[in-house]
Simulated scan of single mutants.
Amino acid sequence: MPLTSSDHDHAQVVHVEDSRLDASIAIQFKEDFRNLTDGDADVILDMSQVEFLDSSGLGSIVAVYKAMGPNRAMALAGLQPAVEKVMMLTRMNTVFAIFPTLGDALSAAAAPHAAE
């Protein structure tokens, strides 16, 4: 599962570098995600390249979010229309903050820290 990571001031961004997040790569996604995010930063999952998400892929996103623990947040950014539809139909939009672009997600992550 091709994932890359970049650190920003107020969040770690994990980029999904594949067009599909499905049963064929869900287990590898979970393993790679956990290896990349072993710190304590909040995470933004950049899904702008993902065009297809099935229930296994969705389950893997939820699993890594739960594994991050209660003191960390995870937001989703750049959802393609088909992926966004899955998120809305499964009501995952009530679990995750969803942003149209990575830039929007980074701005929101920085906003609570602006007064510091």
Rank of each mutant, 00 (worst) to 15 (best):
A73Q: 12
V16T: 02
P70E: 12
E51F: 05
I27E: 15
D40F: 10
L58K: 00
I44C: 07
Q28I: 07
T94E: 11
P81D: 13
G57W: 09
H15N: 11
M87Y: 05
K85N: 10
S56R: 11
Y65Q: 09
R20G: 00
I27G: 14
I44Q: 03
E31T: 13
L76N: 07
V64L: 04
V50T: 11
R20Q: 11
K30Y: 15
S55I: 00
P81N: 11
V86S: 10
A63Y: 01
F52K: 08
A77H: 05
P70R: 14
A73D: 15
P81L: 05
V64A: 10
P81H: 04
L89A: 10
S55M: 05
K30H: 11
A82S: 14
E17M: 11
L45R: 07
M92I: 03
D22P: 02
R34V: 12
L79Y: 10
L79F: 09
D22M: 03
E31I: 07
A41W: 06
A26I: 01
K30D: 14
A73Y: 07
V16A: 08
R34P: 03
I44A: 04
L76F: 05
T37G: 02
G59Q: 00
Q80F: 10
A75L: 01
L76R: 09
G59Y: 08
M74N: 03
S56I: 04
V16E: 03
S56W: 13
V16W: 03
M68G: 10
V62G: 05
G69T: 08
Q80E: 15
N71E: 15
H15F: 14
S55G: 13
Q28D: 15
V14H: 07
S56Y: 15
V14W: 00
Y65S: 09
K30V: 09
D32F: 09
M68F: 10
V62K: 00
K66Y: 09
V43M: 03
A26E: 00
T94Y: 00
L53P: 02
M88C: 02
L45N: 08
P81A: 06
S19G: 09
M92H: 02
H15T: 08
L36H: 01
G69M: 12
A26H: 12
N71D: 14
G57V: 05
V83G: 01
S56M: 14
P70I: 00
A26K: 13
V14S: 05
L89E: 07
A82W: 00
A26D: 01
A63D: 12
A82K: 12
D18N: 04
A82V: 05
S24Q: 13
S56A: 15
G39Q: 06
L36K: 09
T94N: 02
S55Q: 11
Q28R: 11
D38T: 03
E31V: 12
D54F: 04
A75R: 09
R72I: 06
P81V: 03
L36W: 11
T37I: 00
E31P: 03
A73W: 04
D32M: 06
D38W: 11
G57E: 05
G78H: 04
G69W: 06
E84R: 07
S19R: 04
V43T: 08
P70A: 10
A73C: 01
R20H: 11
E84K: 04
Q80N: 15
D46W: 01
E51A: 13
L58N: 05
E31M: 06
A67T: 01
D32C: 11
P70D: 15
L53Q: 02
A82T: 10
D38P: 01
A23H: 06
R34A: 14
